[in-house]
Design a protein around this nucleic acid. Structure first.
Ligand code: SF4
Ligand code: SF4
Lengths: 126, 126
DNA sequence: TAATTAAAGACAAATACAGTCTTTATTATC
DNA sequence: GATAATAAAGACTGTATTTGTCTTTAATTA
C-alpha cells in the first residue's frame, strides 16, 4: 500500500498553483516543463483536480488553469482525495456489518490520518 | 491506495489464533478450511507472520502454528506491518531532503494512523 | 524409514498504475 | 465565419503489484 505517484504530482502541482496565486492562467505546456512531466499525463491529473473543484480551466487562447478557491481553504486531504478517491483504505467483502471491530479499528486509525491531512493546508508549506 | 487482501486475511487469522490461544498447534489444512482460503496461499501469509515473529511454526507430525507472544502484546500494527512492510506510505525520489514540508505533513499524518494501530491489540476485539 | 507437516520458489492470472496517442470540444482573435 | 490555442475525453499500451497455483525441498515425529 502506497500513495500513487499521481498524488505526489498533484501535491506538487497544487503547491505551485498556490505559489503563483493571482497570476494569469497557467497553461499546460509551461506547467509540464516546469514540473517535468509529459503534457498529456499532466493533463489527466489536472482534469481530476478540476473535477474536484480545486482548480478551474478555461479553454481557448489565453486559457489554462487557475485556483478555484482561496488558497487558505485547500487542504492536503482535498488534493489527495481528488486523486485517490474517497473509499476507505480497509474494506472487506462481507460488509455492512456495523458491529465489526476489525473494521472499526481500521477506520478509526484512518480517520486520525485524515484529520491531520484536513488540518494542514497547502499554503502552510509553500 | 488500499490495504491488500493479504492484510485483511492476516488480521482475521491472528484474531483466530488469539481466540484459540492455549490450544494445540493449528495446522495448515484445518486453518485453511476454517478461513476459506486455499492452503498454499494461506501458507504464504503464515510464513510472513512467522518471519515477523508473531507466530511460530513447527514442521512434522503434530506440527503447525501457534502464537509466539502473549496475546496482549500483539497490536494491529504488528500484523499489518508483517504483511505491508515498513516503508512510508508517501515517498518521493529526490529524497533525503529533511527540510521538505510536503513529506513532513504526509509522514506526520501517517504517524497518527500508525499510533492508533499500535495502541489497539487484537485481543481487544475478539 | 515413512508419514506429516511447513518453507521456498517458479510460475501464471488478474488487477491497478503510469503513461502515450489521437480525436473532439470550447474559447478568443482576426 | 475561419483559424489558432487551449483543455477534455477516450482508446490504447506497457509496467508493476497483487493474488493465487503448483511443485519441490526441508524438518520433525513416530
Ligand atoms: S469480521 Fe469484520 S472485517 Fe472480518 S469479514 Fe466480517 S465485517 Fe469484514
Ligand atoms: S519537495 Fe519534498 S516531496 Fe517534493 S520532491 Fe522534494 S523532497 Fe520530495
Amino acid at each position: 500500500m502506497k500513495y500513487t505517484k499521481a498524488t505526489n504530482y498533484a501535491l506538487h502541482i497544487m503547491a505551485y498553483f498556490v505559489k503563483q496565486e493571482g497570476k494569469d492562467n497557467l497553461s499546460l505546456q509551461p506547467l509540464a516543463s516546469h514540473m517535468d512531466i509529459s503534457p498529456t499525463y499532466l493533463s489527466k491529473i489536472l482534469t481530476q483536480l478540476v473535477k474536484a473543484d480545486l482548480i478551474q480551466s478555461t479553454p481557448g487562447v489565453n486559457g489554462g488553469y487557475s485556483l478555484r478557491k482561496p488558497k487558505t481553504e485547500i487542504s492536503f486531504y482535498d488534493v489527495i482525495q481528488a486523486i485517490e478517491g474517497s473509499g476507505a483504505l480497509f474494506t472487506c467483502e462481507m460488509d455492512e456489518n456495523r458491529a465489526c471491530h476489525i473494521e472499526k479499528v481500521m477506520r478509526d486509525a484512518e480517520e486520525k490520518m485524515v484529520n491531520h491531512l484536513k488540518e494542514k493546508r497547502i499554503y502552510n508549506i509553500v
